[in-house]
Design a protein around this nucleic acid. Structure first.
Lengths: 205, 205
DNA sequence: GTCTATAAACCGATAGAC
DNA sequence: GTCTATCGGTTTATAGAC
């Protein structure tokens, strides 16, 4: 396909943070135009309507994200190290790109069935299948779907709740550090919480 | 304080599912009035403006919820059983009340700092502190805040992502069953994923 | 405490000049 | 490809009768 026009990309890049923060209904075409540096009428030259602009913005924000997240899962290293590499990457990407995180969040909350099916099958399906495969390799006794969801939950929910967490008991600045989060999650997943009434488990690393 | 007027409560009970589903900007005063069975102007007799109505609806939806969730944490039973009881209750409440779940979700996504601070300190702070206490009792080697967040994440994120999960590989209907989710999370937390290159751990229950 | 009627602003979208 | 100007509809909120 041809190179996309510069100003179409400008519009999308201006739109992503607005939609991420205030949602579809919370952003007007006037504000989108103002932020992108043109008039509302000009937006309709690039997109047929607001819905199309929103969908293009979501697609733009998600572009390459799934591939970036999946990359560590293709490394030729032992499964436990692969898990740690993925957790680290996942935490880093999630911490670095709050717009991406908020948009996923919003799509899950507000997306209709057709959009969620598209998101699941075309954007995150491949990544999720690879996480399931790793889960099956590491823990054959677990339901791979449930375990893959748990793995995602431990990182994603930690950052999703960050604005609230800051005011909860025990919050400390380093809890936002991707290295700290990934280490905690890896330790929890691989060894559990080692309750006092059970013998300490042997650890290889 | 005096018993609240009947129709004020009617309005809030009509408003909660609307705001939960479509968000603050997605619900008009007209629709709120229509759903509650009166005219838009009458709403302004009970609430000074839309924002106040929304906040009252959120408070109404959260009322008693934190206490209901915290109850199993006060049982006089061993910590591992207390954990399982809490996970079970948390999964049941979360599965049974999607409006509550969506509103929390939305508040975290859209709430300003003042509202989130209020939510953290006045609504969920006590519950979270008790989860942290249980975490410290079960796993002294972990950061209690991080572990409490992980514990919440495993249940909350599972249900938050339900509409998307349905279309991801490996999804099965029983994955929405609170008993199944609570059992999975309890097993994962207490024992970890027991990787093949480590010896099987002894289990007391 | 609820109504009818309406103000004032903003919404998405279009027409047509350049 | 972007502009000015504007249409018809909806928004939050208010005034005033009952």
């Amino acid at each position: 396909m041809a190179a996309p026009s510069r100003s179409r990309t400008d519009i999308l890049e201006a739109a992503v943070p607005l939609f991420a923060r205030d949602g579809y209904n919370g952003v007007s075409m006037r504000r989108l135009a103002e932020t992108a540096g043109l008039t509302p009428a000009a937006l309709y030259h690039h997109f047929p309507d607001k819905e199309a602009l929103y969908l293009a913005a979501v697609r733009h924000a998600f572009e390459g994200k799934a591939r970036e997240l999946a990359a560590p899962l293709d490394l030729d290293i032992p499964p436990r190290r692969r898990l740690r590499a993925f957790l680290r990457r996942f935490a880093e990407v999630t911490a670095a790109d709050p717009d991406f995180r908020r948009l996923v969040h919003r799509e899950i909350l507000e997306g209709d069935e057709a959009r969620l099916r598209l998101l699941a099958e075309r954007v995150f399906g491949g990544l999720f299948a690879r996480i399931m495969a790793l889960a099956g390799e590491l823990a054959p006794g677990f339901d791979p779907h449930l375990l893959a969801v748990s793995l995602v939950a431990l990182v994603a929910h930690h950052y999703e709740t960050a604005p609230l967490r800051a005011f909860l008991p025990g919050a400390r600045p380093e809890h936002d550090d991707p290295a700290v989060v990934a280490r905690h999650v890896g330790r929890l997943l691989l060894g559990g919480i080692a309750p006092p009434d059970a013998p300490e488990r042997l650890r290889t690393a």
